[in-house]
């Protein structure tokens, strides 16, 4: 998982306007692999389950319906790639920026002082691929600041750094 899309400077989708004083970090390529795997594991059996009974009962022409999930796979393959490229984050002096989304773009800014807790989670599938997810909670439940697909080392580094910065700048409600 060496290549993590470590693009420097302004990102392609340019949701960050003012040039941040840090590097935009991408997420691990393994995340893309996991997501594509999940896509294949759900849609390919679905295609088979749709096509086979139709072929046997109604004839081969009807089995073309099985192509629909396959088309979804083809589209999803590319969409997941674009989505994966859109995930990026940068640690600035006073806040963390998370940018994501292709069609619906979102950029979240969380000042370090507002962080209430930092959570690192890793499910079984994510662990298998060496991934972890960092989630930031502020006092507002609507704050949506999650970075999926980090290498465990990077996740821990980020967690420690965020906790440290949050502790130094913490503020009440």
């Amino acid at each position: 998982m060496a290549d993590a899309g470590q693009s420097t400077g302004s990102p392609g989708n340019a949701t960050g306007a003012a040039e941040p004083d840090g590097r935009w970090n991408g997420v691990e390529r393994a995340l893309l692999r996991v997501r594509r795997l999940v896509l294949l594991c759900t849609l390919l059996p679905l295609a088979a389950v749709t096509a086979l009974p139709l072929w046997l009962t109604a004839g081969p022409a009807w089995a073309a319906f099985g192509l629909l999930p396959l088309a979804a796979v083809a589209w999803g393959w590319g969409a997941l790639g674009r989505n994966w490229r859109s995930w990026r984050y940068v640690e600035r002096a006073d806040d963390l920026l998370i940018s994501r989304g292709v069609l619906w773009r979102q950029l979240t800014v969380v000042p370090y002082g507002r962080m209430q807790l930092v959570e690192v989670t890793s499910g079984p599938l994510e662990r298998r691929y060496g991934l972890a997810r960092v989630q930031l909670h502020t006092a507002a439940a609507t704050t949506d600041a999650t970075i999926p697909g980090l290498a465990p080392d990077e996740a821990e580094r980020l967690r420690d750094r965020l906790t440290e910065l949050g502790g130094a700048r913490s503020a009440g409600l």
Binding site: W104, Q106, L107, T108, R114, T138, A140, D144
Partner: peptide, 24 residues
């Protein structure tokens, strides 16, 4: 507590965007 920049596909076409703030 946090600031969000949000933009849907149609808004992007119109060169518009939303800015949301979350409070405690």
């Amino acid at each position: 507590q946090s600031v969000r920049f949000e933009q849907g596909p149609w808004e992007r076409r119109m060169r518009l965007a939303d800015v949301a703030v979350d409070h405690g």
